[in-house]
Design a protein around this nucleic acid. Structure first.
Length: 224
DNA sequence: GACCAGGCACATC
DNA sequence: GATGTGCATGGT
């Protein structure tokens, strides 16, 4: 079925591009901030915004919490939609400090589904941002779906174009149901696979699937 | 100058 | 529930 095809595509991407070392960032907190800043935004612009926070030594939950929204917006300007994102960051910080006292370790101990629901309740955090935080900042076993994933895998007939976020996610997460056991070791393996898979999809899309100039003829997945 | 980028919330039908 | 729109910078 599609599980073999999904694993086939994964290994093709991995042998083509190698490990992607996602998520770029030196700490879980930086990853969470980046996940919000990158919404509908090129990563290079997010990096500039994060650099602004770093150079002011403000990449810290409590310090950011003390900033005014307008000052925060000023600092994250390069990431675009800065007024919206400044508010979203503030709402997230409020949640992070109130619920977890700004403690990543405490957050990591919470059950995946509970944490996911909590994140989705925060204004400005939708499914993709929540799952990026869960997978890349907290090491939870969840697959991140984005617009590229839908575009590429519906073209390959593995999902339907109209599938919801959840449906696409389930298709990918069914990959691990065959493994049966859920020891720490196998969980780590799936976290690693979901981590690389999403990153590889983004890499592939950027190089071969751009809307205006698709390069299907030389795509590594050609013929698969 | 148009189009796009590692989305989301909200309004409207 | 499906579709459209605002948010907004910076690279191609």
């Amino acid at each position: 079925m599609s599980t073999e095809k999904l694993l086939g595509i994964y290994s093709k991407l991995y042998t083509t591009f190698g490990p992607q070392y996602w998520w770029p960032g030196n700490s879980s907190f930086e990853i969470m901030v980046g996940a919000i800043l990158t919404q509908n935004t090129n990563w290079a612009n997010v990096e500039k915004a994060i650099l602004n926070l770093k150079s002011e030594k403000l990449l810290d939950a409590r310090k950011l919490d003390k900033l005014s929204v307008s000052r925060l917006a000023e600092l994250i300007k390069p990431a675009g939609c800065f007024n919206v994102k400044a508010k979203r960051l503030k709402d997230f910080l409020n949640f992070f400090l109130k619920e977890y006292n700004g403690n990543i370790g405490k957050m990591r101990k919470i059950d995946l589904n509970i944490l996911r629901r909590q994140l989705l309740e925060v204004n400005g955090i939708g499914p993709e941002t929540a799952d990026s935080i869960l997978l890349y900042a907290l090491g939870k076993k969840i697959f991140v779906v984005d617009a590229y994933t839908k575009r590429i895998f519906s073209r390959h007939g593995i999902i339907n174009q109209k599938d919801s976020y959840q449906q696409v996610q389930e298709t990918f997460m069914r990959l691990d149901s065959s493994s049966g056991k859920s020891t720490c070791k196998t969980i780590d393996r799936w976290v690693k696979l979901f981590n690389e898979y999403h990153a590889l999809i983004v890499r592939l899309a950027k190089e071969f699937c751009l809307k205006s100039k698709p390069r299907c003829e030389i795509c590594p997945l050609k013929g698969m």
